[in-house]
Computed example of a mutant assay.
Amino acid sequence: MGRRFLITGTAAQVGKTTVGCALGFAMRARGMRVGVMKPVDTLESQDAQSLALAVGSNMPMELICPYRSSSTSAPAPDLSHISRCFDEIAAQNDVVLVEAASTIDFADLATTLNLEVIVIVGNRPGCLDATTLALQRCESRGIKVAGCILCDCDPATEISEVPLKKLLGDFYLGRMRHREPLPKPIVEKLGTVLIRPEN
């Protein structure tokens, strides 16, 4: 079985979809079958479609994003239904990337689907405290952390990565700069699944 990741963030709009697309594309380029999922989203958002396009997924959008509605009429998501959709996606792929949704507690989602967590750290003031809280949540629930990626989600904000490296140690995977590709070392650290042999 390949690896299964939940991509969560230290706040809203920190680059979860951007990193998910870049990571999925890079893994696919290395010969992996990559599945994606964003369990809950709004009709106005294109995040689920962007993830699917990045990895070349032809799976039905009903599986990739089983709860998609207007923000004013969103039904309460059922984790058991999300789990069934996820299992169908995972059965056909070497690695699965799931983007967290604000309407579901990320720890509940990671526990239900047995996912390793990737924390996207938005390069903003207060991100160190937010990262610490996210890691504490994972530790308290026994959730495996794959690592943290610093993302320059706001191009005007430049915060040194040194304090984050010191805080995270081996959990620090690297930095994704604004409008630049995902660095190769990040992909290599997370892409430790069997590469499919050429036919």
Rank of each mutant, 00 (worst) to 15 (best):
L6S: 03
G9S: 13
G9F: 02
T10N: 12
A22L: 11
G24A: 08
F25N: 14
R28D: 07
R30Q: 15
G31Y: 06
K38L: 05
T42C: 05
E44N: 10
E44C: 07
Q46G: 14
Q49K: 06
Q49A: 14
L51I: 08
L53H: 11
G56W: 05
M59N: 01
P60R: 01
P60K: 02
E62A: 13
C65Y: 01
S70C: 09
A74H: 11
P75K: 10
P75Q: 09
P75H: 07
P77V: 01
D78S: 09
D78H: 07
S80H: 10
S83V: 01
D87L: 01
E88P: 00
I89R: 00
A90V: 00
N93P: 03
V95I: 15
V96Q: 01
V98Y: 01
A100L: 03
L109P: 01
T112S: 08
L113I: 11
L113S: 07
V121F: 03
L128K: 09
L133M: 13
Q136F: 04
R137C: 09
I143E: 10
V145S: 05
I149T: 06
A156I: 09
A156L: 14
T157H: 09
I159W: 03
I159V: 12
P163Q: 08
L164D: 08
K166E: 15
L167P: 02
L168D: 04
G169C: 11
E180A: 12
P183N: 12
I186Q: 04
V193M: 10
I195S: 12
N199C: 07
